[in-house]
């Protein structure tokens, strides 16, 4: 359990300086292209020619590979194996090898590879985005564009509260372990351990809600005046142009799906 709940790496790079919304639109363009765009190799090309070079541009390539490896390889590997083996046998496809009663077909492997590469694009595009965008910056930018301030409050407050509660949870778990809690014990014992571990945590954090509500009301949280933002977020002409470009890609991706082939 880590003390900081963001992937963000503070660094000087041209990708860091790109407007958060532009990056977000780019992420969605990648995902939609991967799932709806034409061609078997498109998702793989997006990773090799798009996301990976961008991670170098953002000077976060090492963090990118490490995070993607940690979060994605197990999932994608599992998906690939399971789907190669369990893809429904249509009958006329070529059998590559036989495992027990299961046929691994060319069809199955192709399907598995496509699914796995799409998931890879989806998750790793977000990883790249999160590594180069501070959550406060994203929220300030979206608030300026009309997202409600209360909504932005919820996101950033959650990012702060989770590590707090995780820290408290660790303390409680350690305390209970020293009193003989065994997380490897019998099923009944582990079920019995759930309440003493979570009870104090849950009630403690719920009681704070009332005072915090008073505290933020005292600082005009519900003011009807138009809000301003402390952070100044760059939004250049290039950003705007890039957003239109990515939107166009999204439209083309959907279009390719609808086009009668």
């Amino acid at each position: 359990m880590k003390d900081k709940l963001t992937f963000y790496i503070e660094r000087e790079s041209s990708l860091h300086r790109v407007n958060p919304l532009t990056k977000l639109v780019m992420v969605f363009a990648f995902i939609i292209l991967a799932f709806f765009g034409p061609g078997f190799w498109l998702p793989s090309l997006l990773v090799v020619l798009g996301i990976i070079p961008l991670s170098f541009l953002g000077r976060v390539q090492r963090e990118y590979f490490r995070t993607a490896g940690r979060l994605l390889l197990p999932v994608v590997g599992f998906l690939f194996l399971m789907q190669s083996v369990f893809h429904p046998d249509v009958g006329d496809s070529r059998v590559l090898l036989q495992v027990w009663v299961l046929n691994v077909t060319v069809e199955g492997v192709r399907f598995a590879y496509l699914t796995a590469s799409r998931i890879f694009v989806m998750v790793s595009a977000f990883i790249l985005f999160l590594l180069t965008t501070h959550p406060s910056e994203l929220m300030s930018d979206l608030t300026r564009r009309g997202l409600s301030g209360t909504f932005a409050y919820v996101i950033t407050a959650t990012l702060q509260i989770i590590p707090q509660m995780q820290a408290k949870a660790s303390t409680i778990i350690d305390a209970q372990r020293s009193r003989g809690l065994d997380t490897d014990g019998s099923f009944r014992k582990r079920v019995g351990a759930l309440l003493p571990l979570t009870g104090p945590l849950v009630f403690g954090s719920l009681v704070e809600v009332e005072e915090r509500a008073i505290a933020i009301e005292a600082r005009a949280f519900t003011s009807k005046l138009e809000k301003t933002s402390l952070r100044e977020i760059p939004d250049t002409k290039l950003d705007k142009a890039a957003r239109w470009f990515f939107l166009l890609l999204i439209v083309l991706a959907f279009g390719s799906k609808l086009w009668p082939s």
Binding site: V154, T158, I162, Q166, A169, S205, V209, A213, I216
Partner: peptide, 13 residues
Amino acid sequence: WVLIPVAIAINVV
């Protein structure tokens, strides 16, 4: 609004 972040943290933890 103040409960929601706490509730999300409860989900996660």
